[in-house]
Protein backbone atom coordinates (compact mmCIF):
# COMPACT_ATOMS: atom_id res chain seq x y z
CA UNK A 1 0.00 0.00 0.00
CA UNK A 2 2.94 2.30 0.63
CA UNK A 3 3.78 4.69 -2.15
CA UNK A 4 7.35 5.36 -3.11
CA UNK A 5 7.03 9.07 -2.47
CA UNK A 6 6.29 8.59 1.20
CA UNK A 7 9.84 7.54 1.88
CA UNK A 8 10.98 11.08 1.24
CA UNK A 9 8.83 12.46 4.04
CA UNK A 10 11.68 13.25 6.39
CA UNK A 11 13.62 15.00 3.66
CA UNK A 12 10.61 17.06 2.56
CA UNK A 13 9.88 18.07 6.14
CA UNK A 14 13.45 19.25 6.55
CA UNK A 15 13.36 21.41 3.41
CA UNK A 16 10.04 23.02 4.33
CA UNK A 17 11.14 23.64 7.90
CA UNK A 18 14.37 25.21 6.71
CA UNK A 19 12.59 27.54 4.25
CA UNK A 20 10.09 28.53 6.96
CA UNK A 21 12.91 29.31 9.38
CA UNK A 22 14.75 31.41 6.79
CA UNK A 23 11.63 33.42 5.97
CA UNK A 24 10.92 33.85 9.67
CA UNK A 25 14.43 35.17 10.20
CA UNK A 26 14.15 37.55 7.23
CA UNK A 27 10.77 38.87 8.44
CA UNK A 28 12.15 39.61 11.88
CA UNK A 29 15.12 41.46 10.38
CA UNK A 30 13.12 43.51 7.88
CA UNK A 31 10.47 46.03 8.80
CA UNK A 32 9.16 49.53 8.64
CA UNK A 33 12.04 50.83 10.79
CA UNK A 34 15.38 49.67 9.31
CA UNK A 35 17.55 47.95 11.90
CA UNK A 36 20.96 46.49 11.00
CA UNK A 37 21.15 42.72 10.98
CA UNK A 38 23.90 42.70 13.62
CA UNK A 39 21.81 44.77 16.04
CA UNK A 40 18.78 42.51 15.53
CA UNK A 41 20.79 39.43 16.36
CA UNK A 42 22.43 41.19 19.31
CA UNK A 43 19.17 42.34 20.94
CA UNK A 44 17.46 38.99 20.48
CA UNK A 45 20.51 37.30 21.95
CA UNK A 46 20.47 39.73 24.90
CA UNK A 47 16.75 39.23 25.43
CA UNK A 48 17.08 35.45 25.44
CA UNK A 49 19.89 35.66 28.01
CA UNK A 50 17.85 38.20 29.96
CA UNK A 51 20.52 40.91 30.02
CA UNK A 52 19.86 44.56 29.08
CA UNK A 53 21.18 45.86 25.76
CA UNK A 54 23.41 48.93 25.47
CA UNK A 55 21.92 52.42 25.22
CA UNK A 56 22.69 52.59 21.49
CA UNK A 57 20.51 49.54 20.95
CA UNK A 58 17.51 50.67 22.98
CA UNK A 59 15.36 51.46 19.90
CA UNK A 60 16.33 48.21 18.21
CA UNK A 61 15.54 46.30 21.38
CA UNK A 62 12.10 47.83 21.86
CA UNK A 63 11.20 47.41 18.19
CA UNK A 64 12.42 43.85 17.68
CA UNK A 65 11.75 42.05 20.95
CA UNK A 66 8.32 43.23 22.13
CA UNK A 67 6.82 44.22 18.76
CA UNK A 68 8.27 42.58 15.67
CA UNK A 69 9.09 39.14 17.02
CA UNK A 70 5.66 38.37 18.54
CA UNK A 71 3.95 39.76 15.46
CA UNK A 72 5.90 37.58 13.04
CA UNK A 73 5.29 34.60 15.34
CA UNK A 74 1.53 35.25 15.38
CA UNK A 75 1.44 35.78 11.62
CA UNK A 76 3.33 32.53 11.01
CA UNK A 77 1.03 30.57 13.36
CA UNK A 78 -2.15 32.09 11.88
CA UNK A 79 -0.89 31.30 8.37
CA UNK A 80 -0.06 27.72 9.31
CA UNK A 81 -3.40 27.20 11.08
CA UNK A 82 -5.57 28.65 8.32
CA UNK A 83 -3.68 26.80 5.62
CA UNK A 84 -3.87 23.46 7.42
CA UNK A 85 -7.57 24.00 8.08
CA UNK A 86 -8.10 24.78 4.39
CA UNK A 87 -6.22 21.69 3.21
CA UNK A 88 -8.14 19.44 5.61
CA UNK A 89 -11.50 20.85 4.53
CA UNK A 90 -10.68 20.51 0.85
CA UNK A 91 -9.83 16.86 1.41
CA UNK A 92 -12.83 16.11 3.59
CA UNK A 93 -15.32 17.73 1.22
CA UNK A 94 -13.53 16.72 -2.00
CA UNK A 95 -13.92 20.34 -2.92
CA UNK A 96 -11.00 22.39 -4.29
CA UNK A 97 -12.56 25.73 -3.32
CA UNK A 98 -13.26 24.95 0.33
CA UNK A 99 -11.74 27.44 2.76
CA UNK A 100 -12.76 29.32 5.87
CA UNK A 101 -13.53 32.45 3.88
CA UNK A 102 -15.34 30.86 0.93
CA UNK A 103 -17.46 28.59 3.12
CA UNK A 104 -18.54 31.41 5.40
CA UNK A 105 -16.87 29.89 8.46
CA UNK A 106 -14.79 33.01 9.07
CA UNK A 107 -17.88 35.22 8.86
CA UNK A 108 -19.60 32.90 11.29
CA UNK A 109 -16.66 33.13 13.69
CA UNK A 110 -16.64 36.94 13.37
CA UNK A 111 -20.34 37.00 14.15
CA UNK A 112 -19.70 34.95 17.28
CA UNK A 113 -16.94 37.29 18.42
CA UNK A 114 -19.02 40.40 17.69
CA UNK A 115 -21.91 38.94 19.71
CA UNK A 116 -19.48 38.29 22.56
CA UNK A 117 -18.33 41.93 22.48
CA UNK A 118 -21.84 43.33 22.10
CA UNK A 119 -23.36 41.35 24.94
CA UNK A 120 -20.25 41.51 27.10
CA UNK A 121 -19.79 37.74 27.26
CA UNK A 122 -16.61 37.16 29.25
CA UNK A 123 -15.14 34.58 31.53
CA UNK A 124 -13.86 35.82 34.87
CA UNK A 125 -10.07 36.32 34.92
CA UNK A 126 -9.74 35.36 31.23
CA UNK A 127 -10.43 38.62 29.37
CA UNK A 128 -10.20 37.28 25.81
CA UNK A 129 -11.70 33.85 26.35
CA UNK A 130 -15.24 35.15 25.74
CA UNK A 131 -14.64 36.23 22.16
CA UNK A 132 -12.49 33.20 21.48
CA UNK A 133 -14.96 30.59 22.71
CA UNK A 134 -17.84 32.32 20.92
CA UNK A 135 -15.78 32.51 17.71
CA UNK A 136 -14.99 28.78 17.87
CA UNK A 137 -18.61 27.84 18.67
CA UNK A 138 -19.97 29.96 15.83
CA UNK A 139 -17.34 28.65 13.41
CA UNK A 140 -18.48 25.09 14.17
CA UNK A 141 -22.13 26.07 14.08
CA UNK A 142 -21.77 27.75 10.68
CA UNK A 143 -19.91 24.75 9.27
CA UNK A 144 -22.73 22.46 10.44
CA UNK A 145 -25.42 24.76 9.02
CA UNK A 146 -23.66 25.17 5.69
CA UNK A 147 -22.96 21.48 5.31
CA UNK A 148 -26.44 20.29 6.30
CA UNK A 149 -28.05 22.81 3.94
CA UNK A 150 -25.78 21.66 1.13
CA UNK A 151 -26.48 17.98 1.84
CA UNK A 152 -30.18 18.62 1.63
CA UNK A 153 -29.79 20.38 -1.72
CA UNK A 154 -27.52 17.81 -3.25
CA UNK A 155 -26.09 14.77 -1.54
CA UNK A 156 -22.81 14.77 -3.41
CA UNK A 157 -21.75 18.15 -1.99
CA UNK A 158 -20.72 19.54 -5.37
CA UNK A 159 -18.40 22.51 -5.59
CA UNK A 160 -20.94 25.07 -6.79
CA UNK A 161 -23.64 24.14 -4.26
CA UNK A 162 -21.35 24.38 -1.29
CA UNK A 163 -19.77 27.66 -2.45
CA UNK A 164 -23.19 29.18 -3.13
CA UNK A 165 -24.47 28.23 0.30
CA UNK A 166 -21.23 29.55 1.78
CA UNK A 167 -21.62 32.92 0.07
CA UNK A 168 -25.26 33.17 1.14
CA UNK A 169 -24.32 32.27 4.70
CA UNK A 170 -21.52 34.89 4.68
CA UNK A 171 -24.03 37.55 3.63
CA UNK A 172 -26.48 36.39 6.27
CA UNK A 173 -23.79 36.51 8.96
CA UNK A 174 -22.66 39.99 8.00
CA UNK A 175 -26.23 41.30 7.94
CA UNK A 176 -26.80 39.92 11.44
CA UNK A 177 -23.52 41.62 12.40
CA UNK A 178 -24.84 44.91 11.01
CA UNK A 179 -28.03 44.54 13.07
CA UNK A 180 -26.00 43.87 16.23
CA UNK A 181 -23.77 46.86 15.49
CA UNK A 182 -26.82 49.10 14.99
CA UNK A 183 -28.25 48.22 18.39
CA UNK A 184 -25.02 48.08 20.42
CA UNK A 185 -24.63 51.83 20.41
CA UNK A 186 -21.88 52.58 22.94
CA UNK A 187 -19.68 49.64 22.02
CA UNK A 188 -20.30 50.43 18.37
CA UNK A 189 -16.94 51.93 17.67
CA UNK A 190 -14.92 49.04 18.98
CA UNK A 191 -17.07 46.51 17.12
CA UNK A 192 -16.81 48.31 13.80
CA UNK A 193 -13.06 48.31 14.12
CA UNK A 194 -13.03 44.74 15.29
CA UNK A 195 -14.56 43.38 12.10
CA UNK A 196 -11.63 44.78 10.12
CA UNK A 197 -9.12 42.79 12.16
CA UNK A 198 -5.47 43.50 12.71
CA UNK A 199 -2.37 41.66 13.77
CA UNK A 200 -0.79 44.89 15.00
CA UNK A 201 -0.13 44.70 18.69
CA UNK A 202 0.21 40.92 18.73
CA UNK A 203 1.65 39.72 22.01
CA UNK A 204 3.58 36.64 23.10
CA UNK A 205 0.43 35.56 24.88
CA UNK A 206 -1.49 35.56 21.58
CA UNK A 207 1.34 33.56 20.03
CA UNK A 208 1.19 31.05 22.88
CA UNK A 209 -2.58 30.59 22.46
CA UNK A 210 -2.19 30.12 18.71
CA UNK A 211 0.68 27.68 19.20
CA UNK A 212 -1.27 25.62 21.74
CA UNK A 213 -4.31 25.44 19.44
CA UNK A 214 -2.18 24.52 16.48
CA UNK A 215 -0.31 21.90 18.48
CA UNK A 216 -3.52 20.13 19.52
CA UNK A 217 -5.72 20.58 16.43
CA UNK A 218 -2.78 20.28 14.06
CA UNK A 219 -1.63 16.98 15.55
CA UNK A 220 -5.13 15.55 15.42
CA UNK A 221 -5.53 16.61 11.77
CA UNK A 222 -2.12 15.24 10.79
CA UNK A 223 -3.00 11.92 12.43
CA UNK A 224 -6.10 11.77 10.23
CA UNK A 225 -4.17 12.13 6.97
CA UNK A 226 -4.83 8.50 6.02
CA UNK A 227 -8.59 8.92 6.55
CA UNK A 228 -8.57 12.14 4.56
CA UNK A 229 -6.91 10.27 1.69
CA UNK A 230 -9.76 7.77 1.81
CA UNK A 231 -12.36 10.58 1.86
CA UNK A 232 -10.68 12.15 -1.17
CA UNK A 233 -11.55 9.04 -3.17
CA UNK A 234 -15.09 8.83 -1.83
CA UNK A 235 -17.15 8.38 1.34
CA UNK A 236 -18.14 4.84 0.28
CA UNK A 237 -14.54 3.92 -0.30
CA UNK A 238 -13.65 5.27 3.10
CA UNK A 239 -16.41 3.25 4.74
CA UNK A 240 -15.33 0.08 2.94
CA UNK A 241 -11.75 0.28 4.12
CA UNK A 242 -12.94 0.64 7.69
CA UNK A 243 -13.03 4.38 8.36
CA UNK A 244 -15.65 5.50 10.86
CA UNK A 245 -16.96 8.18 8.49
CA UNK A 246 -19.19 9.98 10.96
CA UNK A 247 -16.65 10.18 13.74
CA UNK A 248 -13.77 11.23 11.51
CA UNK A 249 -15.83 13.87 9.76
CA UNK A 250 -16.97 15.37 13.05
CA UNK A 251 -13.43 15.32 14.47
CA UNK A 252 -12.01 17.11 11.43
CA UNK A 253 -14.80 19.71 11.47
CA UNK A 254 -14.29 20.44 15.18
CA UNK A 255 -10.53 20.80 14.73
CA UNK A 256 -10.98 23.08 11.72
CA UNK A 257 -13.46 25.21 13.69
CA UNK A 258 -11.02 25.54 16.58
CA UNK A 259 -8.24 26.67 14.25
CA UNK A 260 -10.41 29.17 12.33
CA UNK A 261 -12.15 30.43 15.47
CA UNK A 262 -8.92 31.16 17.36
CA UNK A 263 -7.32 32.80 14.30
CA UNK A 264 -10.37 35.00 13.71
CA UNK A 265 -10.61 36.03 17.36
CA UNK A 266 -6.95 37.11 17.38
CA UNK A 267 -6.39 38.47 13.89
CA UNK A 268 -9.85 39.09 12.43
CA UNK A 269 -10.83 37.68 9.04
CA UNK A 270 -7.83 37.06 6.82
CA UNK A 271 -9.23 35.62 3.63
CA UNK A 272 -7.95 33.11 1.11
CA UNK A 273 -4.89 31.80 3.02
CA UNK A 274 -6.45 28.36 3.34
CA UNK A 275 -7.30 28.42 -0.34
CA UNK A 276 -4.10 29.65 -1.92
CA UNK A 277 -1.39 27.72 -0.13
CA UNK A 278 -2.78 24.15 -0.23
CA UNK A 279 -3.22 24.53 -3.99
CA UNK A 280 0.29 25.76 -4.59
CA UNK A 281 1.59 23.02 -2.32
CA UNK A 282 -0.42 20.35 -4.14
CA UNK A 283 1.45 21.21 -7.34
CA UNK A 284 4.73 20.43 -5.58
CA UNK A 285 4.06 17.47 -3.28
CA UNK A 286 0.97 15.91 -4.88
CA UNK A 287 -2.46 15.14 -3.41
CA UNK A 288 -1.42 12.63 -0.70
CA UNK A 289 -2.55 14.18 2.58
CA UNK A 290 0.34 12.60 4.45
CA UNK A 291 2.57 15.07 2.70
CA UNK A 292 0.03 17.71 1.73
CA UNK A 293 -1.00 18.53 5.30
CA UNK A 294 2.47 19.16 6.78
CA UNK A 295 3.59 20.93 3.61
CA UNK A 296 0.51 23.19 3.76
CA UNK A 297 1.27 23.95 7.38
CA UNK A 298 4.75 25.23 6.58
CA UNK A 299 3.82 27.02 3.33
CA UNK A 300 0.87 28.73 4.98
CA UNK A 301 3.25 30.20 7.52
CA UNK A 302 5.66 31.29 4.77
CA UNK A 303 2.89 32.78 2.60
CA UNK A 304 1.34 34.84 5.39
CA UNK A 305 4.72 36.01 6.73
CA UNK A 306 5.64 37.28 3.25
CA UNK A 307 2.21 38.90 2.80
CA UNK A 308 2.62 40.59 6.19
CA UNK A 309 6.13 41.73 5.27
CA UNK A 310 4.67 43.35 2.15
CA UNK A 311 1.89 44.95 4.22
CA UNK A 312 4.43 46.36 6.68
CA UNK A 313 7.09 47.62 4.31
CA UNK A 314 5.64 48.45 0.88
CA UNK A 315 4.21 51.83 1.83
CA UNK A 316 6.18 52.47 5.02
CA UNK A 317 5.49 54.31 7.33
CA UNK A 318 1.96 53.45 6.29
CA UNK A 319 0.73 49.93 6.81
CA UNK A 320 -1.73 47.95 4.70
CA UNK A 321 -4.33 45.70 6.33
CA UNK A 322 -3.04 42.13 5.99
CA UNK A 323 -6.38 40.87 4.68
CA UNK A 324 -6.11 43.24 1.73
CA UNK A 325 -2.82 41.71 0.59
CA UNK A 326 -3.98 38.10 0.97
CA UNK A 327 -7.32 38.77 -0.70
CA UNK A 328 -5.60 40.37 -3.67
CA UNK A 329 -3.42 37.30 -4.27
CA UNK A 330 -6.22 34.95 -3.24
CA UNK A 331 -8.90 36.35 -5.55
CA UNK A 332 -6.64 35.85 -8.56
CA UNK A 333 -5.92 32.28 -7.45
CA UNK A 334 -9.61 31.59 -6.86
CA UNK A 335 -10.48 32.53 -10.44
CA UNK A 336 -7.62 30.45 -11.83
CA UNK A 337 -8.60 27.36 -9.82
CA UNK A 338 -12.29 27.69 -10.57
CA UNK A 339 -11.68 27.91 -14.33
CA UNK A 340 -9.30 24.99 -14.29
CA UNK A 341 -11.69 22.78 -12.34
CA UNK A 342 -14.51 23.72 -14.73
CA UNK A 343 -12.67 22.91 -17.92
CA UNK A 344 -11.27 19.63 -16.82
Amino acid sequence: MKRIGEQFDGWIYAVFALVTLCVFFACVCLGSVPIPLRDTVQVVHDAVRGVPSGAALSLARSVVVPIRLPRVLCVALVGASLSLAGAAMQGLLKNPLADGSTLGVSSGASLGAVLAIAFGITFPRLPFAGTMVMAILFALLSLLIILSLSYRLDGSLSTSTIILIGVIFSMFASSVMSIVITFASDRLRSITFWTMGSLQGSSYRNAAILAATLAVSGTVLLLHARELNAFAIGDDNARQIGVNVRRVRLTVLVMVSCLVGVCVSIGGTIGFVGLVTPHMVRLVVGPNHKRLLPASLFSGAVFLMLADLAARTLFSPRELPLGVVTSMVGAAMFVAIYYRSRWR
Binding site: G31, S32, V33, L59, S62, V63, I67, R68, Q200, G201, R312, S316, P317, R318, E319, L320, P321
Partner: peptide, 19 residues
Protein backbone atom coordinates in the same frame (compact mmCIF):
# COMPACT_ATOMS: atom_id res chain seq x y z
CA UNK B 1 3.52 62.03 11.11
CA UNK B 2 3.26 65.36 9.30
CA UNK B 3 4.87 63.72 6.27
CA UNK B 4 1.71 61.72 5.61
CA UNK B 5 -1.42 63.13 4.03
CA UNK B 6 -4.75 62.89 5.85
CA UNK B 7 -5.66 59.88 8.03
CA UNK B 8 -3.27 56.96 7.72
CA UNK B 9 -2.74 53.51 9.18
CA UNK B 10 0.85 53.33 10.39
CA UNK B 11 3.31 50.78 11.75
CA UNK B 12 3.75 50.55 15.50
CA UNK B 13 7.54 50.51 15.00
CA UNK B 14 7.39 53.93 13.39
CA UNK B 15 5.97 55.55 16.52
CA UNK B 16 8.89 54.18 18.50
CA UNK B 17 11.41 55.37 15.93
CA UNK B 18 9.87 58.86 15.76
CA UNK B 19 9.81 59.03 19.56
Amino acid sequence: FGDLDGWAEISEEQVLARN
